[in-house]
């Protein structure tokens, strides 16, 4: 268990070292990813300029949802966002090289092309989280602290599973990358708002079937001590880690099946 993590650190560390050689360019990218993702929070503020509440949700509560989803998503993006370039790896046949090495193929894809600049996105989420927590005056219990600590990694695993499943599409067509965006970037956009605003068919699809509702909506209800406007069972608020494990298992199975379908480029 430990050895792959050490290897991951070694592989990623080497890439980070070479990225930090170009300091100005790195800082520009960091700032850029901060700025662009921050627009989404400006949108939240614009909405609440017009209404005091969105359904039963105040701006502070939505800020908390926004921050938690953004942080989970940004960390996922940092860890495996380079899966967006996976179709390119398939197209030019460079995936072959990973397959002749004695390590899991997904592990190797994830450990290559790491981009530290994506950290900018997470910084923006942390900033909003600080604002939300400062404004909300939550009553902190052991349970709530534990929830906050557990829900972020669970959210990362859920987003990551969705991303991996989306990336598998590249084994069939290398032009469909944007399809995956609907669930990754789209999933983040969705999870930044309380899911009771969406129509029930969309919720069933994007919050339960694709379990993005478990990234932050349900855990946040518990953090806020809020009554679920959808009236769903309370145990769902604690289900995120379980959902994450299931999602990861499904993603791993699909990946393994898809690799067997790999056709490789160039005769």
């Amino acid at each position: 268990m430990v050895e792959p993590v050490l290897l991951w650190r070694r592989l990623v560390g080497a890439q980070v070292r070479s990225q930090l050689q170009y300091r100005t360019s790195f800082l520009l990218d960091l700032f850029g990813s901060f700025l662009i993702s921050f627009i989404d929070f400006l949108a939240v503020l614009v909405i609440f300029h017009n209404v005091p509440q969105l359904g039963v949700w105040s701006v502070r509560e939505v800020a908390l949802l926004y921050a938690l989803s953004s942080i989970s998503f940004a960390l996922t993006d940092l860890l495996i966002g380079h899966l967006d370039q996976f179709p390119q790896k398939i197209r030019d046949g460079n995936f072959d090289i990973l397959l002749v090495r004695p390590r899991g193929s997904l592990f190797q894809v994830v450990a290559s092309d790491f981009q530290l600049r994506r950290l900018g996105k997470a910084m923006q989420g942390v900033l909003v989280l600080v604002y939300a927590l400062a404004a909300l005056h939550l009553h902190w219990t052991v349970g709530r602290v534990a929830m906050l600590v557990v829900m972020i990694p669970a959210g990362v695993v859920i987003f990551a599973s969705v991303w991996v499943i989306g990336a598998c599409l590249a084994f069939w067509t290398t032009d469909g990358g944007e399809f995956t965006n609907a669930f990754t970037y789209g999933g983040n956009f969705m999870a930044q708002y309380p899911i009771d605003v969406y129509a029930s068919w969309l919720r069933r699809f994007l919050c339960y079937l694709v379990p993005l509702g478990f990234v932050c909506y349900f855990p946040a209800l518990y953090l806020l001590g809020k009554h679920d406007p959808l009236g769903l069972p309370r145990f769902l608020q604690f289900a995120s880690p379980v959902v994450a494990v299931i999602a990861a298992a499904v993603a791993g199975t699909i990946w393994r099946g898809a690799v067997r379908h790999y056709r490789s480029a160039g005769g």
Binding site: D96, L99, V100, R260, Y262, R263, S264
Partner: peptide, 9 residues
């Protein structure tokens, strides 16, 4: 070669 190395099934 790709079948011999396990890249292709």
């Amino acid at each position: 070669i790709k079948m011999l190395t396990g890249i292709l099934v």
